[in-house]
């Protein structure tokens, strides 16, 4: 990871930590500008548009040097009989569900890392291998990864996968938002190949606007919910659907960033060798502040 992002990372953890500890957790949504770029990118997945061709699966593998096979072999729809999860061999998968409202077409849902705005994987990683980049992608540094798999445990979407079958240098694998492609100004491989542009790539701010507009114009088609707009503090990948998201195997999540944030201070400090004493002092301070606030709150309520 380059020096710049390492500094950013420190800043990130410290500011999020302070935010969460000092104020009520809802404020974590309003993230300081120096961490989350206003222009960070995202993808709007419209499941009502997706046709389940699985071209994105093929493109993703090809872009990441994973064995992909022939594109036309992805026309086989028998894979839809069971629900699949992204793994080390496929960073994204498409699952099929029965149709939503006012349609007789099945709903196809592409699954991959959501690239959270406040990623639990970043907070959980004890060596700081994970980072949220300025362009919105959440990536990791294989050289730093020690294989502790904390990210796997922390991720509210159970995305990171571990190369258990690899004897030498096993690493975490997940969708990297095609970081290497976007760096060169290319589109993510899945976005580029999608024949119906079920995946719209743009700044997160604009995507939210577009999603709202689509719901407003077609209230009979969509459920009034942009998944990822607020879930776990917001995600870069967001979804539209014609069916309640719980029926599409999306986890029901609150609007607060997933837990793992307070350990991040600890981990951050470990990673950069700050003496534990100051850590305890800081944690103690934070605990005192939050306890004090809680007491005040309760008094206020009574």
């Amino acid at each position: 990871m380059p020096g710049k992002s390492r500094r950013d990372f420190l800043k990130t953890t410290a500011v999020i930590g302070a935010g969460v500890a000092g104020l009520s957790s809802s404020t974590a949504k309003a993230a300081p500008k120096n961490i989350l770029s206003e222009d960070r990118m995202g993808v709007l997945v419209d499941t009502t548009v997706c046709v389940g061709c699985r071209n994105c699966e093929w493109a993703c593998k090809t872009a990441h040097d994973l064995p992909a096979g022939e594109l036309h072999s992805y026309e086989d729809r028998s894979v839809f009989t069971e629900k699949r999860r992204p793994g080390t061999k496929a960073l994204t998968v498409v699952n099929e569900y029965s149709s939503g409202k006012n349609s007789n077409l099945p709903l196809d849902v592409k699954v991959q890392c959501m690239h959270c705005d406040h990623p639990a994987c970043v907070s959980a990683c004890i060596v700081g291998a994970f980072s949220k980049e300025e362009n919105g992608s959440v990536i990791w540094d294989t050289d730093k990864c020690i294989g502790c798999r904390y990210c796997m445990a922390a991720c509210p979407f159970q995305v990171p996968a571990f190369e258990y079958d690899k004897a030498i240098n096993p690493s975490i694998m997940k969708c990297d938002f095609c970081f290497n492609r976007t760096k060169e100004g290319k589109l993510p491989a899945c976005v580029a190949i999608c024949p119906v542009e079920a995946l719209t790539y743009g700044t997160r701010t604009e995507l939210v606007k577009i999603a709202r507009e689509r719901i407003k114009r077609n209230p009979d088609k969509y459920v009034d919910h942009i998944f990822g707009e607020y879930e776990v503090g917001g995600t870069a990948w967001m979804y539209l659907s014609s069916k309640d998201f719980s029926e599409l195997d999306f986890p029901k999540l609150g609007t607060n960033p997933a837990p793992g944030v307070s350990e991040s201070i600890q981990h951050g400090i470990f990673a950069y060798f700050v003496p534990p004493v100051s850590l305890y002092a800081l944690l103690g301070g934070i605990m005192w502040i939050s306890k004090h606030r809680k007491e005040l709150d309760e008094e206020g309520k009574l």
Binding site: V51, C194, P195, V196, E197, T200, Y201, E206, I210, E213
Partner: peptide, 11 residues
Amino acid sequence: ISKPDLEAAYH
């Protein structure tokens, strides 16, 4: 990006 590109529109 508010409307699909030509390829997507056709498809």
